[in-house]
Structure formats: C-alpha cells, structure tokens
Design a protein around this nucleic acid. Structure first.
Lengths: 156, 156
DNA sequence: CAGGATCCCTAAGGATACTG
DNA sequence: CAGTATCCTTAGGGATCCTG
C-alpha cells in the first residue's frame, strides 16, 4: 500500500495514541529547550557540568535533571576520570546514539538560520574537502527529494 | 579561524545568552510536544482543526494556541475556503517554511526509530524511483560526513 | 465544525544556598 | 567542581462548557 505522504494518514486512526511514533518518543527526551541546548553544547564539545550550566544558562538542578535523562536515554555517557595528582572529575560525552543525533541538530540549525532572524557568523565545513556541510533528504539512489516526492507505505 | 566542531565553542563565550543560536530560536517555536506533533500531522496531510485535536490527542485550546504560534512563525498558513452550498471552513496548510522543516522531522523520525523502542511499520520512499528516503549530513561535494569530520569556522 | 472562555492544576524551571 | 536541597513562580496544558 503506497500513497503520497500527504494522504497516508487517513489509513491509520490516531497513531499518536498508540505511542508508536518515533517523533513523539524522541520529543519526550529532547523536546525541551534545556535538553536540546545541552545537546547542542555537547556537539560543540562541552563536557563539564558547570560549563553546561553557564553556556546553556540554566539552573544547576535543571542541568542535573536533563543530563540524567539524556544519560538514561543513552545519548550521553558519564565518565569519571582522574588526572594523576588531581581530584576526581565527571564528564559527559556523546555516545554513538548521541552523535547519531547530529542530522537532527544540524537540520534544526539550518532551518532556524533560514527561517528565523538568527544568523550567526559560523560555517560548518567538511574537514579536508572544505566544502560546507548541510543536511538533506535523499533516497538511496542519491536523488534529493522534497515532500511532494515522498510516498509512505505501510508494511502490513 | 577553523577548528574541529568539538572545540569551536571555547572561542565564543555564552552564545546562548546572546540569543544568536538558531537552534534555540527554533526550539521556541517547535520545541514542545504539541507543536512538533501538530507539525507531524501537517506533514501527513492533516489540515482540519478537529483532526489535529484528535490525532495529536490534545485539548482544543492547546491546538488553537499552537496552531496560532505555528501560523505566526510562518510554518502554517490558514486558509478559509467555502465549498458551494457548504459553510465556511478553515484549513491549515504547510507553507514553504513549513515544508522546509521536513529534514528536521524526518531526521527526528529516523533517530527515534533507531534509538528508541518505537518502530512503526512504515516506509518512506521516493516516488517513481521507489528507493527508501532518509536524511543525511553531507558536504556540497557530496561526501557523507560524521561529527568528527566537521569543522566550524567563525566568519569574523 | 472551528474555535474562544474559563478553571484548575501540576510539573518545569529560575534563584539561592549548601555539601562532598 | 559537581552536584543536592529548598523555595517559589509561572506557563503549559487538560477538562469542560459555550458560541458563531
């Protein structure tokens, strides 16, 4: 059963109620300002608790809470480490699941830059190749596709 | 000034405070469960108020509120139309800014499917070509790149 | 059918202070 | 530095009822 994306919905009744939607699940984890911005910071290389607090500009309790959620959801992992002679420290690092979130983050960044009034003077480019980096929607054959060219099929 | 993405942050102090971040701005608009799911429904072809209410399973007030925000933010546009003999109705349609949100939505869908326990039996494919569709991070030269291969440069 | 008005309520998050 | 504890405030959102 295949039909254009705009139209497949009529085939299923209230799938939101079933809890089947990955988007919904994802929003439960990263669907808040603090969570998303903590993740943004993680992509920028932030690993320390206090840095998250300051750079996201949130309360310590909020940071602790969301860091825990992100850790439990598997996006971040907590690492205790101890430099010789120094005392013990904690760090938060992106896991594979966390780095896998990059397309979402970059897509969101791009969308915001294009459709809001924020346009920070920063460019992301491919190391070595130096060409600018962006997210795109493509089929496995390599064609870039828009919404109108996507069909949704229920595998039933 | 170019450096690996993981590391560029140290160069700017608290850019979240400046309100410069597109991600932050974007989260202000779509960074809630209702907003994101309304948008999801819009991608599936939902246009009517009551359908949004039922399929997202939210209160009318919540729907009205978020529909308005999405409209004001330019993602949705309200269209009054009147079929001959019927009374006036309202519809919400994706604008260009709205359809431009597709990469985010699809990336979020994919991430959720891969990293949460939700795996709905649905496949998105390229009409005609029939190959499955997905989001990817690429440079303009066409290389698929991961986080480690991205460098961030401040254009200053 | 497409909402507006109202009420209520809880959970999120800021501020501040404290601890190992 | 990496949090926890406490307090307080507000905005988000559900439920219900009403209207053009």
């Amino acid at each position: 059963v295949g039909m254009t994306m705009t139209g497949v919905l009529e085939d299923r009744s209230a799938w939101s109620a079933t809890g089947w939607c990955p988007v919904e699940k994802a929003m439960g984890i990263v669907g808040s300002r603090p969570a998303m911005l903590i993740l943004r910071e993680a992509f920028y290389g932030t690993t320390r608790f206090d840095d998250f607090v300051q750079r996201v500009a949130i309360a310590p309790a909020t940071a602790a809470s969301h860091l825990r959620v992100l850790e439990e959801a598997g996006l971040l992992e907590r690492r205790s480490y101890q430099e010789p002679g120094a005392r013990r420290r904690e760090e938060y690092h992106l896991t594979e699941s966390g780095t896998d979130f990059l397309p979402v983050m970059l897509a969101l960044f791009q969308w915001g830059r294009r459709h809001t009034d924020t346009n920070p003077p920063i460019t992301f480019s491919h190391t070595g190749c130096d060409a600018p980096v962006s997210t795109s929607v493509r089929c496995d054959a390599g064609h870039e596709v828009g919404l109108a060219d996507i069909s949704a099929a229920l595998d039933c």
